[in-house]
Design a protein around this nucleic acid. Structure first.
Lengths: 210, 210
DNA sequence: TAGGTCCTTTCTGTATGCAATACTGCGAAC
DNA sequence: GTTCGCAGTATTGCATACAGAAAGGACCTA
């Protein structure tokens, strides 16, 4: 029923390949090779590449095709605060009534996160779900679109983030505090912790940089 | 020297056609007709359409091509505050030293605006230059990209805005006050006026809506 | 007359083809 | 040893071709 264009799947697939490094940062993308590897023709592949370039994960070099945008610690320093501000804005624009319905579900996901941490699982998927839930009531689709476009860029730098279990535990605590603030109807507090959560993540990232 | 892909020109051309109504809001885009009309093949045209859909000016209906996104007053009510916040953020993230160098140039452009208003010219182009100059020192390219992607959406609703000469004069005054605040190094004031400038524009827009 | 089915036409989504430009390697000149 | 030039190859950017889905309409049925 929900027919999805090939380019959407390709965007997803290519994104994961960039994130896990199979498409190395800074490397040129060979359309013919990649198309053959993915089993599609160049046309939908190019459409996907263009979409990814619009989002900033690739850069287009006219006459020379596409490059995976180079890995740049400074970029992380710009992306984290940006996502922080955007999420905080989304929170501010969500009606308090809608927000009041969220804390229980948020804490449930935070619980999942704690469990995943116990098991030594990857937290990023659960973390993503938590944030998606937090923003799910924001009535501004354009803002959500911008956030959705920006977050994948950030995930490239996230690997180091959840590396430290200490930081992960701390982060879960922050998540719970945000939910608690929402329960109290204290939006400024929730927003402040949210921004701090992102900024701290960046700080840890900086430490692990070599 | 600066070779530009065909799709970039097409994005520009199609954007203006949407803005001036030659491509009506809500209408389906016929790729074959439009390609013939623009004198290009469907391939780069589709690439442009996909880019525009990513930005929200078009929407993609899988299996049915692309539609010009429908005209929706509510959308304007969401876009104006969004651009306002994004620009204010860009301002906050620009170094005060850089900002200190701007007011003279800003006032010069504001002067051009006043002159254009006298002559009864269209102000939007000059206004655009003023805002571009204001943000030109912001060191966060991703934020600037988001702003650049969002503003064209807004322009669809802007026509009514500059309709009133009274509001135009008021807006020019606000621009000068922002420059003055920057001269004083009073960033919060500049930011506040900037946001108010956008919000007021929206208020006028609401009035002219029928 | 309202509704449904089948057929035709149109259009999109994807694949392939082609020309022009950019890269690579090697040899020669300085 | 380095730089320049040139030929051959590879690759992009755009155009065209094809298959399958969607829209539209005529005809049939109730």
């Amino acid at each position: 029923m929900a027919r999805t264009p090939l380019r959407s799947d390709l965007i997803e697939e290519i994104t994961t390949r960039v994130l896990d490094g199979r498409l190395a940062a800074g490397a040129r993308v060979n359309e013919v090779h990649l198309a053959r590897e993915l089993g599609v023709s160049r046309t939908p592949l190019r459409e996907a590449l263009i979409g990814l370039a619009d989002r900033g994960l690739l850069v287009s070099a006219p006459g020379r095709g596409f490059l995976v945008s180079p890995f740049d610690p400074d970029e992380a320093r710009r992306l984290y605060p940006l996502v922080a501000e955007l999420e905080a804005l989304a929170l501010r624009w969500t009606s308090p009534l809608e927000l009041a319905g969220l804390p229980d579900a948020l804490d449930a996901v935070a619980g999942e996160m704690a469990a995943a941490l116990e098991r030594g699982d990857d937290l990023s998927e659960v973390d993503e779900r938590w944030h998606a839930l937090l923003l799910s009531r924001c009535p501004n689709p354009h803002l959500l679109r911008l956030i959705g476009q920006t977050k994948p860029l950030l995930k490239r730098y996230e690997s180091c983030y959840f590396g430290g279990a200490a930081r992960a535990g701390e982060s879960i605590g922050e998540h719970r505090r945000i939910a608690a603030a929402l329960r109290d109807g204290d939006l400024p507090a929730a927003s402040a912790v949210l921004v701090r959560n992102w900024v701290k993540a960046l700080a840890y990232l900086g430490k692990d940089e070599r």
